[in-house]
Nucleic acid binder design. Structure first.
Lengths: 121, 121
DNA sequence: CTCCTGATTCGACAATCATCTATGCACAGC
DNA sequence: GCTGTGCATAGATGATTGTCGAATCAGGAG
């Protein structure tokens, strides 16, 4: 089989929330572990720019071929995109020659909710 | 003078926002650098638990003496608290024997806003 | 089939980081 | 003054990470 699947480890919660806001209650150890993984995925300037590029691209989809001005080599871009995939923040789909990336619905909102200070719900 | 000041490098924006949401526009390089620093501060399970402990402690203040069950040694806790200070997420104040930590007002909200998907403002 | 191009993976390297033990500073009480 | 406790710092070390060049895989075109 091909080992170039573009589908990663399928993190536990790809779209839903995980835990109450940080100001609400003390974080459980396993929740902290999971959340840290997501924050770590955004804890790099290159990945942040890639993620922002994808998220702000019209309907939330961007071709890898459009990404070339982040200051690192193309293999490095691919490496960072993989990290974002493994964190469950983006998904990749190959259509013909090119690969298109889009943000996982709800992933950003979940992280935003954890950091929220004015609890609405 | 004492080199144990508890006051760190005074990050640029300790309370305000920095940039539009990631879905809004592509992140600028220097903004990405700055934001990545903040995400990196939360990209560790221990720091997340410390931060959550401080943030959820009544009026948002916690004594270091209350922190002892995160699974790492006391110097390591101090090291992580320093990282949180340097990232502008918490501030420390010595009152007599103990040191009290509190979250920087607006720091969480700013990060949450960057990740927001439903732009209210 | 044979090229050619786009994208991922591999292997290696330097740099950063999380953790520890040992030490030093700040304050309270004697 | 001295002593004890709380917290921060210093130095060292093993692990993780960001980066690259080279090689490999996937598809389209001739």
């Amino acid at each position: 089989m091909s080992n170039q699947s573009l589908v990663e480890s399928a993190p536990a919660t790809t779209d839903g929330v995980c835990c109450p806001p940080l100001v609400r209650a003390e974080l459980r150890a396993d929740d902290a572990e999971m959340l840290a993984g997501r924050f770590k995925a955004l804890a790099d300037p290159v990945r942040l720019r890639l993620f922002s590029k994808i998220a702000s691209y019209g309907p939330g989809e961007a071709c890898v071929c459009d990404i070339d001005d982040v200051g690192v080599s193309q293999p490095t871009v691919s490496h960072h995109l993989r990290k974002l995939r493994e964190a469950g923040l983006v998904t990749a789909e190959r259509r013909g020659t090119w690969v298109y990336y889009r943000v996982v619905p709800g992933a950003m909102a979940a992280m935003s909710a954890v950091l929220a200070t004015d609890v609405v719900a």
